[in-house]
Write a protein that binds this DNA or RNA. Structure first.
Lengths: 115, 115
DNA sequence: ACAATAGGTAGGCGTTTACCTACCAGTCAA
DNA sequence: TTGACTGGTAGGTAAACGCCTACCTATTGT
């Protein structure tokens, strides 16, 4: 009944677990939709490898492609990231408590380190 | 100057890209700190495999262990999840726009599909 | 029609992942 | 001090990953 199975979540997190793919998302976010070539210029990697990264991103629903002549324009699709945020929500109170605890600790010891 | 390199981000996302590990985090969040055995009861998997999952979570900084007699009590450490949320932030305006666009579309076509 | 361009697919290769069984180390209780 | 119990490590295996080179298809410009 939910439509967003754990396999989909796996695919999204796995897609994000790679610096190249996160960088592709950043480029699409900062510079808008682009053809593969323009993306490829930013990476020290052969084009077929980037194509495979784009496939992973497509299958995670994080990008879409739109054909335009002989180019494929890739576009950021952020909806799966909204689901990541939803997934994070129940943890938020934990990191707020824990970061607060850390702040308090640092307040109480304005001194230096141990090693 | 940042201290949270891309390798750390890789480790966190990779740790989350597995349903067993996400379930461990959920158990620690909902039921509090627990020894390995109590966690293992929830999985259809040999204990050494779960140990390896716990190691991945530890190395991502998502859990900590505290020895107590012969048990190891695992505890949720949510700070890396706060960094995931920070990473998500710049994408938020995209999914808001896109989800809004989808809503509008559904409003304008109360009809059915194409294929 | 032909050459050039954009970009995907096939297949190979070394590394990593996720599981397993076997074994080891530390702690506790009799 | 020996035996049970908790949980990690070693080592093996099959599958997945990330990269490569080679090749294929589709489109475009001459």
């Amino acid at each position: 009944m939910n439509g967003t199975g754990t396999a989909a979540e796996d695919r999204v997190f796995a897609a994000l677990a790679n610096a190249t793919r996160r960088e592709v998302l950043r480029l699409l976010r900062e510079r808008g939709p682009q053809p593969v070539q323009a993306l490829a210029d930013h990476f020290d990697m052969r084009r077929p490898s980037l194509s495979e990264h784009l496939k992973v991103l497509r299958e995670a629903g994080l990008v879409s492609e739109q054909r335009s002549g002989r180019q494929r324009i890739y576009r950021l699709e952020a909806a799966p990231l909204a689901e990541v945020q939803d997934w994070l929500h129940p943890y938020e109170r934990f990191w707020r408590e824990q970061l607060k605890g850390l702040g308090d600790l640092l307040d109480r010891l304005p001194d230096d380190d141990q090693r």
